[in-house]
Amino acid sequence: MTTATNAAAPTLIGSVQRALKLLDAVAAHADGAPAKQLAREAGLPLPTAYHLLRTLTHEDYLRREKGVFVLGEAVGRLALGGALQNRRSRLEKSLVHWRDAIGVPVYFALYHEGEIELVAVADTPYAPAVAEWADFRETGHAHAIGQCLLSQLDEAGRRDHLDRHPVQAVTPYSVRDKRSLLERLASTERMQPVVERQEYALGTVCAAIPITAGSGAATMAISLPLHQQGRLMPAIEQLRKGIGGLLGSLAFSISI
């Protein structure tokens, strides 16, 4: 059994290599190329090329149009996935930079398809992030991240969100009702930090700044223990001035 398995491994690897050569050959022709030409360019026997082309077409990596093969949608998804991963990596590095520069946990979140999505967090054992003890999506009214994202929506969007996720007391300091929250959100000045003190977690203060692009909404936020609340506004102002437009191009290209 071991011998058979070892013997099969090079064949499987070779098949992958041959398929990749065919994909490279197809990619070199914007308008596509026929099987015989692709086989020749990939250095493959024609029967082998036909078999792999059929397989790649079936899996949507290639598409056959008028006798020639062109790249299929699956290749585009692979490329998009790589680009998104690159953007996510850049985002995470940015959060780490500001975590270290300011000495506080830094959060990045989006409002995506009607929900609050916490995308990434950078913290340390000495400056830990706030534990998600109550679902962030359900309690957007209580934390700075949620309030900042909701403040960027229009009135209808806010009401829709709060109809799906009703306002409720999370701590004794939480906003008590929908009307009070809507009034607070309406009075929030555009592009100014949103601050909450112990509304989501006792002993914690948080601040968030909006990052907008078109009709989308995103935010970066920080948190501190209550006894360090004097650092909150200087820290969020340092973040606000420092990031500028750096993350605007990233915020809405990240797939959650």
Rank of each mutant, 00 (worst) to 15 (best):
T2I: 15
A7M: 13
Q17A: 13
A19I: 02
L20K: 05
D24Q: 12
A25Q: 04
V26H: 04
A27I: 01
A28S: 08
A30M: 11
L38W: 12
A39K: 11
A39S: 12
E41W: 10
G43N: 10
A49H: 08
Y50I: 11
Y50K: 13
L53P: 03
R54K: 15
L56F: 07
E59Q: 13
E59W: 08
L71S: 06
G81H: 09
G81T: 08
A83H: 10
R87W: 01
R87K: 10
L91D: 06
K93G: 07
V96P: 04
A101F: 07
I102P: 02
F108G: 05
I116P: 08
A129H: 05
E132L: 13
R137Y: 01
I145Q: 12
C148G: 07
L153R: 06
R158N: 00
D160A: 09
R164T: 07
P172L: 03
L181S: 04
R184A: 14
L185V: 05
A186N: 10
S187P: 06
V195N: 05
E196K: 07
Q198W: 03
C206G: 13
I209R: 01
A217D: 10
M220F: 03
A221R: 00
I222F: 02
Q228K: 07
A235Q: 00
E237N: 15
I243R: 01
